[in-house]
Design a binder for these strands. Structure first.
Lengths: 165, 165
DNA sequence: CGACATTAAATGTATGTACATATATTTGCA
DNA sequence: TGCAAATATATGTACATACATTTAATGTCG
């Protein structure tokens, strides 16, 4: 799990809040913006931890799971490391080493790309596809945002988009 | 930066979205819930990366910054590792080693607690306080959620609370 | 053609997370 | 009193992130 949870220092502290303070030990925030920021980061960590624990029993981590899903999306075409990095959105992350782990578990294959010998063709194996299918069943059993209605989820997405404008 | 960004595999893909697809390379999601989930995690990562880059020039990381803020909140009282862990909300994280780094930079001191020799009293130094003051100036210059109104921030917090209900 | 920049991936290093285990101190209780 | 349980922190290991550097292959342009 790779979400850093914001700390909640006791400083200033003028604004009483209602819900997030039950989760953390700090009942007071400087203002609504600080509360929203902490809540955003904390909740993202919350959903990722839940998600991750759902397939920890299958022996893969969240980043490994995400790489596998990208590869399934490409299947039966191969993906390159570059494509994985683009899809992960995290240009600085190291897809190469995550693929190492998946290769060791025989969930993907890595072969030099014939048309460009600098590149590497990465493919999900049958074993990898089967694993994803099993994990999918578990994930569908308890959808992570099921406490929200479809309208609320859309509202949430709109607010999040606005943050990054 | 320790937020894992959700991958966006090409799978199923029935639901056209509007905004987050500009940031990532995948223009289509399975449904609004998948979009919301990815948006939540992605946006949390976005704000943390911005935050982190704001004080990277000061030679500390986001976890180190958060520990320092907790210590400032306690100042001039000392904090124990236990208190840091509580405030970080991340019971499994390793505050001890983050304090190591801060101690090496002379931003905090670590002394055995006189009344309980198992515990360690951790205090922010004057140098640490000065560093935080400088960083605060930078952070205040560009508040991270400034694109939202106060009403929108509250609405966001309510939706996030509901997710974790 | 050949030097040089560009591209694709891998590797190196420091930091952090997640989780298990170890060490030292204190507490509780037979 | 003495010894096991509980507590506070530190340490070990695997994995991932963040960022710089390296290696190999390809592209470009004189």
């Amino acid at each position: 799990m790779y979400v850093h949870i914001f700390a909640t220092p006791f400083q200033g502290t003028l604004f009483q809040i209602m819900k997030i303070e039950d989760e953390i030990k700090q009942p007071v925030f400087k203002d609504a913006f600080q509360k929203g920021l902490i809540n955003l980061v904390y909740t993202a960590g919350w959903v990722q931890q839940r998600n991750s624990s759902q397939f920890k029993e299958f022996g893969i981590t969240l980043p490994q799971f995400n790489i596998l899903r990208i590869l399934r999306g490409q299947h039966p075409k191969p993906a390159t490391v570059n494509l994985l990095i683009e899809r992960m959105l995290d240009k600085t992350s190291n897809a190469s080493r995550i693929v190492d782990k998946l290769e060791a578990k025989k969930l993907v294959t890595r072969t030099v790309c014939p048309s460009n010998r600098r590149a590497v063709d990465i493919c999900i194996t049958d074993s990898g596809l089967e694993l994803l299918q099993e994990i999918d069943k578990v994930l569908e059993r308890e959808p992570l945002l099921h406490k929200l209605t479809e309208a609320e989820v859309s509202q949430l997405s709109d607010l999040l988009d606005k943050i990054r404008d």
